[in-house]
Amino acid sequence: MNAIATIAGREIRDGLRNRWALGAVLLMAGLALTLAFLGSAPTGVVGASPLDVTVVSLSSLTIFLVPLIALLLSHDAIVGERDRGTLLLLLSYPLSRWQVLFGKFLGHLSILTVATVLGYGAAGVALALAAGEFDADSLASFARMVGSSVLLGAVFLALGYLISATVRERATAAGLAIGIWLVLVLLYDMALLGLLVADQGRTISAAAFNWLLLLDPADIFRLLNLAGLSKTSLFAGMAGLAEQMQFGRAVLLAALGAWVAVPLAFAAFVFSRKEP
């Protein structure tokens, strides 16, 4: 256990020293603040809480940004150390490979958590100062959004390690990371939409469609935050989807958890088989 903490500590220190953590915090805070204030301008007309609108816009930000930051942190984790020549020495030490991997995961997840909480928290605090009180419901959905953003980050960290443990070249890892981001964040949704249009509801039932959504962690995140509340789903244009939603919040969270655990386990398996 001590070994895992030591590895995690080194990753955090490395992240701070490389200005990685700082960059992530500033980027997220900057974009979150921009979205919060641009997005809350028209709410007087709709009569909605500005925090609810911010949850919707920050959720969309998370889907693009958090996976990208996570993959940038993780895709180099193993192949980069192998390339620099630091991996060989580390593996001669009294710790097993899954401890190396898990330590890195904890370290990177800490950086990501701090960046998300600070970045989005800054937006929340700024809104509170500008708009006054929020109701408990809105606060809860804001907190859920921040929490599930971290969970989505964990998914893409795990996917990044799987890439990093598998390939031999750093460039390949970077290419694959971009590919995974494109597919899961952009292309899968488009393909699904195309499929639905072409199918015209003949073969794909609502239930089957819901299952198809579980195959993409970004869609699970969307369902969790945008379709979860009747208030937010209305703004997000996902009300129609929410009505047909057959999975509860627990199922969605479990599915996202599986998206962390399975790639991480695979990464550990591949890493343990690979020669340094």
Binding site: R10, D14, G85, L89, S92
Partner: peptide
């Protein structure tokens, strides 16, 4: 056990 690899390398930022 001690090991000094050929062309030993360390994290350059530490």
């Amino acid at each position: 056990i001690g090991f000094l690899p050929e062309n030993v390398a360390f994290s350059p930022a530490m």
